[in-house]
Write a protein that binds this DNA or RNA. Structure first.
Lengths: 209, 209
DNA sequence: GTCTATATCCGGATAGAC
DNA sequence: GTCTATCCGGATATAGAC
């Protein structure tokens, strides 16, 4: 039986699987799981529908694989927030990184958002275990910073939610932002301008006074 | 007005249309336009599939009507931000209201989010015209407040985006929040706690220093 | 490995009885 | 106004030729 991703694969196999996953990320992220069709994924990947099903056993498997990939990249920067660093600097770095990810991989952000909005059927367990642990851990770090007087007293969980909400908004609501701001949102300086504004408000908001 | 061709309707007609729209909001908001089925909407509305199509000509019409309703309620509080009021108080009121809406009508928020995330096929024109005008107008108000030294100098558009992102996050990512915070997020005090944290960070972030 | 059928199912929409 | 029956298009997945 066609095994999972870890079997030995020919060059053409890994290449085509990668093509499919890239196309799938694009289609799933805008149309959602049910709205997406194999036809469109195949088209984007530059191969036939049946060929797509040769490399993956089913539509759901494609979705699942794409989702797993994005989640991995999602956790990493968050887990790197260090209790040893300077609080404001640590958060500045994390927020900047997250904004950059939204700008460079908006589709990954939307795929994740879409999954959560439908009730996270494939990810609920992950959210309740690994993610919860990690958030609890980082919330404790933030609370310690507050106790040490290095940050204004604010609920750590809501701070984390706010950072996620704000940074991901630039990917998930890109259509709305472009509609409102026009071309400027697609030009070079926009990313820096965004980072400056977001960092300014959040960091000011949590600086001890 | 508002485009709804309000023919005379019997009691049972208005009642059933309302039942359908409520069910539709629920289903569309989680499954998206394409993922939703008339079958599920009918089931939720407590009537047969064919009967649903007796009251609405098509699936798209149901979606369109539900979307229009939510957008109306969406604009109103924003348009009420007044240049005459105290800046911090005006924003506090708006943010609080928006948080309340997220808590009380999470489905409306998700329906809107879903539509934007798929590229806003039915709403792009609205976003580029009415919404853009309104945002430009309110951004000018905020800029004036800044010029008068009543707020810290921050890009008004990004401030607005941040408020939207943060407040809507509590509706759109409810699944994730519940997974992380557990039962407490469904208990009484949670809404106040959220409002306090969000207001504290944002208002501190934009207070002149 | 890739293609051309094709089986099968599901969802939206219509027709017509009551 | 509501129901049963049905049509039709589209979508996933499979079979089998090349």
């Amino acid at each position: 039986m066609a095994g999972t991703a870890n079997k030995k694969q020919s060059r053409i196999q890994t290449e085509n699987r990668s093509l499919i996953l890239t196309a799938a990320l694009n289609v799933f992220s805008t149309d959602g799981y049910r709205g997406a069709t194999l036809e469109r994924i195949a088209e984007r990947a530059g191969m036939s529908k049946t060929n797509v099903l040769y490399y993956f056993p089913s539509k759901e498997e494609i979705y699942h694989t794409a989702l797993e990939q994005t989640v991995e990249g999602w956790l990493e920067p968050f887990s790197e927030i260090s209790a040893q660093g300077d609080p404001v600097e640590e958060l500045r770095r994390y927020i900047s990184l997250k904004l950059q990810m939204s700008a460079e991989q908006p589709e990954a952000s939307r795929l994740f958002a879409n999954e959560v909005q439908r009730g996270a059927p494939l990810m609920l367990d992950f959210l309740k275990t690994r993610l919860k642990s990690l958030v609890d851990e980082k919330a404790a770090v933030i609370r310690e910073w507050i106790d040490q007087g290095k940050l204004a007293p604010v609920d750590p969980y809501h701070l984390i939610f706010m950072i996620w909400a704000t940074t991901q908004h630039y990917a998930d609501f890109d259509t709305q932002i472009v509609a409102i701001l026009g071309d400027q949102s697609k030009q070079k300086g926009f990313q820096e301008q965004t980072a400056h504004a977001v960092l300014s408000i959040i960091l000011n908001g949590i600086r001890p006074r």
